[in-house]
Design a protein around this nucleic acid. Structure first.
Lengths: 222, 222
DNA sequence: ACAAAAATAAAAGTATTACTTTCATTTTCA
DNA sequence: TGAAAATGAAAGTAATACTTTTATTTTTGT
């Protein structure tokens, strides 16, 4: 992966661009580690400030509140998935292979060493698995959607559903299937970690999630 | 529906059984209406007390906190779905029809008039659509799972995955498919309400969700 | 019908959270 | 080097999520 690449996040999500300063990057880097450790409920800007030897009020100069910080991290994650999807299907012509690899890119878990700058993707992936629903399941969804906070997710759905249509243009539910794969992969990771008896997994890894969604997709489309 | 039926909720979820007293039933009835109106984040026992002309401290004698109340409501919802599922497939012999109707029971939205006692199922369904993830996506999942708080959901998954296996005993992912249907139906309802451009729906109702999951299931299993 | 027990209500108190404000200090960079 | 911008320290505020105490009402057994 190209470590000099930067993902662009909608401007109105932050007050000051955290990728533009050292403190900002420390906020991103350590908020991921801290939220992964103690969960979004227990996480406060005060604790984060302590962790990075900075100050509560300084963090508030980057993000309005922890919800906006989470929105930033979630957008970053979707942007990163989009990048992985595009990168892994680039230059391929066979439509089945493209779709198959796209599903792999989405459902495979990040590895420790494929780090993208100062972001710990493994920890971020864990955060998304555990917290992503809370981000849009609020009373303010509609307003936040109007503000364009979820635009990267939308782009990802559009892209994946287009690959689905490229493969089978008669299929009636391309966007629903795209959502099923993207959100389902996260959900099944969660089940795998906390409710193993609610899954059909008998190995340690999450290979079965990839297989499941590939099987489902091609059974549906073929 | 039999209006004298009562759903049994695990005892350790509540301090005092809310179905056992008038105040308790008012707590359930109006918490559903209030949470639906203002969302779980804005909901407090103080506001609920005001609504039902009772007192904050009295509500705390029924539930330890609002999280436990939500756990109660979610359990009630899963229990109710289980009841609908069993009721709608009772006495049928054809396995395809059983599975098909089971999916209908799960993915069809409740109607105003099929009220079960003092519970407003339409409002409860809305709450579940908007809040159900928050209930188990916490740092305490594992502990709460140990306490048996999610037992009704487990029973529902077991039941649905058994119907899937009854129809096709070779299928390798019955539990994952059961989860996909149950949680996916809720998720797609949410998308339909707040992100219509992320769905493939061109009508007002949610028929397409049922059709989608039935198509998906039988394409996978046939 | 009545006393004891249980349930409920009212009010006040506490610790924490999620910020905001003000002002001082440090860093940046033109 | 000096002005502007960024950061830090500390104190303040309103709301939340409870807990506690005490008073009042309701229920229940006899």
């Amino acid at each position: 992966m190209l470590s000099s690449l930067t993902l662009t996040i909608p401007e109105n999500i932050y007050i000051k661009d955290p990728q533009s300063s050292k403190l900002g990057r420390r906020i991103l880097e350590f908020s991921i580690i801290l939220i992964d450790k103690i969960g979004i409920e227990g996480f406060t800007f005060k604790k984060l400030a302590l962790e990075i030897q900075s100050n509560e009020s300084s963090i508030y100069r980057y993000f309005e509140n922890k919800h906006m910080l989470m929105l930033y991290l979630v957008s970053w994650y979707w942007g990163w998935l989009e990048y992985k999807l595009v990168f892994s299907t680039n230059n391929l012509t066979d439509k089945k292979e493209v779709l198959c690899r796209a599903i792999s890119a989405i459902t495979e878990n990040p590895k420790k060493d494929e780090s993208f700058g100062f972001i710990d993707e493994v920890a971020l992936h864990q955060i998304i698995i555990h917290e992503y629903s809370k981000i849009f399941q609020t009373k303010d969804v509609d307003e936040e959607n109007q503000n364009g906070y979820f635009i990267i997710y939308r782009r990802l759905i559009d892209r994946l559903s287009q690959l689905i249509l490229d493969y089978n243009s008669d299929f009636k539910f391309p966007k629903m299937l795209a959502n099923t794969i993207l959100q389902g992969a996260l959900k099944h990771n969660f089940l795998n970690q906390h409710f193993p008896h609610l899954t059909d997994n008998n190995q340690q890894n999450c290979e079965h999630i990839k297989i499941y969604f590939q099987t489902l997709t091609f059974k549906l489309l073929d």
